[in-house]
Design a protein around this nucleic acid. Structure first.
Length: 193
DNA sequence: TGCACGATGAAC
DNA sequence: TTCATCGTGCAC
């Protein structure tokens, strides 16, 4: 298995988010190779995207987002869950794709539908922050075999604070996959439109 | 030095 | 609908 080249990540973030669907996410650790098929992603477009961590400026936490493409941005959320992102576009653009769900392929135990569960199942944590995805321990690769699938899009999850940016269709998932996350129904009221 | 708050998940 | 749980970022 060969890691996708850096050029894959050095492109439009929405395009990368779409094309990551169906790819295999691989993590080798303790002699175990865990593999999951990516079925759900979210695009965070850069410092102008009010839902992105990078929108509030460069800090110690989001430093990796501001770096070159093809690196892992992993952070701890709600004091207990990890989220894995891949940095996209040119150095300094501060965009990334959040990997939200995978379908188990090899050596995966437990549920994988949601960014926190994905990291737990793959044994990915903050120690992987900044890791180059060209590395043999954590990378994304073409699947061994793949059947055609349809892509659906929807608003991103958990970013209601971002106003109009929260309503943009920047979440992508494989239509009909049972491994796509099913977040709790939003308590959002009827919204005029 | 203190404190409010998450790109979540699970229980009630 | 509520809560667990803690690193981060920014206000004092």
């Amino acid at each position: 298995m060969t890691p996708l080249p850096r050029a894959f990540y050095d492109r439009d973030t929405q395009l990368v988010a779409r094309e990551l669907l169906g790819k295999w996410l691989v993590h080798r650790r303790d002699g175990i190779e865990r593999v999951g098929r990516i079925v759900e992603t979210e695009a965070y477009l850069g410092a102008h995207d009010l839902a992105a961590h990078s929108a509030r400026g460069r800090t110690a936490r989001n430093e990796v987002m501001f770096g070159p493409p093809g690196h892992a941005y992993v952070y701890l959320i709600y004091g207990m869950h990890h989220c894995l992102n891949v940095v996209t576009e040119r150095d300094g653009h501060a965009s990334a794709v959040l990997l939200r769900a995978i379908e188990p392929v090899r050596n995966i135990t437990g549920r994988t539908q949601g960014p926190g569960l994905l990291c737990a199942a793959l044994r990915v944590d903050r120690s992987h922050n900044g890791l180059d995805l060209m590395s043999p321990t954590l990378f994304i690769t073409e699947p061994d075999c793949e059947e055609p699938f349809a892509i659906a899009r929807a608003p991103r999850i958990g970013v209601d604070y971002a106003g109009a940016w929260a309503r943009r269709l920047l979440r992508f998932f494989i239509k009909g996959s049972e491994f796509v996350s099913k977040p709790a129904p939003s308590r959002k009221r009827n919204r005029a439109r």
